[in-house]
Structure formats: structure tokens, C-alpha cells
Simulated assay, not measured.
Amino acid sequence: MARKHCTYPWTCWPPASQQRLFKFILLGTAGLCFAVFVGATLFTGALGQDIAAEKEQYGLVVPLVREITTLRAAQGDLVQFSPEEAVRRILDDRSLNDYVASLRATRIAEDQDGVQVTLNGLTLIMLTDFLQDVRDRASLQAPEFALTRNPEEPRLADVHLVLAR
């Protein structure tokens, strides 16, 4: 007896079994899509709640950080000096005088004195230490800041900044 060749495994099944198989496949696919949709909805809802909680926590922390920054600035040992004198002392303390291209007093606004500083050939660590001292010890901020790569040595930086209180 010649056996009938089946293209797909289910083609040799009785029609009722084929119908049942395709119903299960259809229901399984629909169930899987529903599960993915519900999972994605629950996941995004949880993310939304997490984001809201993080925003609330950030809102509580921001005033504390501002207060800490204000207190730190008020405790600096160079606050009583002019911006130019404070920067000169920081440069002396950090031994950065060899890197100074220019340093001169300037006026930012009618009632606000400042200092323009250009430093050449600094490493990133030297620059960050200098800026940290400027902020913490002298309570100065940089309304103008330009950082460029040193033309002679690309691994070093040149910086031009204006500092004021």
C-alpha cells in the first residue's frame, strides 16, 4: 500500500484535529500578545512611579545642596580678599605660576569685581584642583570659561576664565 506523502505533519491528521491545533495556536498567540502587553503596561507603570519618586527625592535634596554650597563658600579662607588676590594666592599654593599666561583684574558689572586668568599647558587634574580651590576657598564662580587643547601638547589643556563673586 502506498503511503500518502504529508507536506506538513498536520496534513495527515483528521480535519477535527487540524482545526483544534490551529485554534490552540491562535489562542496561544493571542494569549502571548496579551501577556506581553500586560507586562509592558505594568513595567512602564512601575517606571513612571519610580521616576516620580526620584523627582520627589531630588526636590528634597536640591535645597540641601544649595545650603551646603553656600556654607562652604562662606567658610573659605580667601573670601575676604579681592578676586585677583585670592586667585594669586591659590596659584601660589598650587605652584601654578609657571602656567599663567595672563592674570588681570576686570569689572564684571558696575559693582562686581573679577579677574581674568589664562593658564596654558595644564593637566586635567591640575585644572580641577585649581577650580575646586577657586570655588571652596575663594567663593569665586566662572561666568566665562573657555577650555581648549594645548597646540604644542594635545594631552594638555589651555583655559581662559573670568572669575567673580
Rank of each mutant, 00 (worst) to 15 (best):
Arg20His: 04
Leu26Tyr: 11
Gln18Asn: 05
Lys23Cys: 00
Gln18Phe: 01
Phe24Val: 11
Phe24Thr: 13
Thr41Glu: 02
Gln19Lys: 06
Ala40Val: 03
Val36Asp: 02
Ile25Tyr: 01
Gly28Pro: 00
Pro15Met: 07
Pro14Leu: 13
Val38Trp: 09
Pro15Trp: 05
Pro14Lys: 15
Ile25Arg: 04
Leu27Val: 12
Ile25Lys: 04
Trp13Glu: 08
Pro14Ser: 15
Thr11Leu: 01
Arg20Asp: 01
Trp10Ile: 02
Phe22Leu: 03
Ala35Lys: 02
Leu21Val: 02
Ala30Cys: 09
Ala40Asn: 06
Phe37Met: 07
Phe34Asn: 14
Leu27Asn: 12
Phe24Glu: 14
Phe34Cys: 13
Ile25Thr: 02
Trp10Gln: 10
Ala16Cys: 01
Ala16Asn: 05
Trp13Asp: 07
Val38Pro: 00
Thr41Ile: 02
Pro9Phe: 15
Val36Phe: 09
Thr11Lys: 04
Pro15Gly: 07
Val38Gly: 00
Val38Gln: 07
Ala16Ser: 10
Gly39Leu: 08
Arg20Asn: 01
Trp13Leu: 08
Gln19Arg: 11
Ala35Asp: 01
Gln19Phe: 01
Phe34Ser: 14
Lys23Thr: 06
Ile25Asn: 01
Val36Pro: 00
Leu26Met: 06
Lys23Arg: 12
Gly39Gln: 06
Ser17Asn: 10
Leu27Pro: 00
Trp10Met: 03
Phe24Met: 13
Gly28Lys: 10
Trp10Asp: 09
Gly39Ile: 04
Pro14Thr: 08
Leu21His: 12
Phe34Lys: 14
Ala40Lys: 06
Lys23Pro: 00
Leu26Cys: 05
Val36Leu: 09
Gly31Trp: 11
Gly31Leu: 14
Gly31Arg: 09
Gly28Tyr: 12
Lys23Phe: 00
Thr29Ala: 14
Cys33Leu: 12
Val38Asn: 03
Phe34Gly: 10
Gln18Thr: 07
Phe37Asn: 10
Phe34Arg: 15
Phe24Ile: 13
Val38Asp: 01
Val36Thr: 06
Ile25Phe: 02
Leu21Lys: 05
Ala35Asn: 04
Thr29Lys: 13
Leu26Arg: 14
Val36Lys: 04
Cys33His: 12
Ala30His: 07
Pro14Gly: 13
Gly39Tyr: 10
Thr29Tyr: 11
Pro9Arg: 15
Ala30Leu: 14
Trp13Arg: 05
Phe37Glu: 07
Arg20Tyr: 02
Thr11Cys: 03
Thr11Val: 04
Lys23Met: 00
Pro9Asp: 15
Ala16Lys: 12
Cys12Val: 14
Gly31His: 08
Val38Glu: 04
Cys33Gln: 11
Val36Asn: 03
Trp13His: 07
Lys23His: 05
Thr41Lys: 07
Gly28Gln: 11
Thr29Phe: 11
Val36Gln: 06
Gln19Leu: 03
Leu32His: 12
Gly28Trp: 11
Ala16Pro: 00
Ala35Pro: 00
Pro14Cys: 13
Thr29Asn: 12
Val38Thr: 08
Ser17His: 08
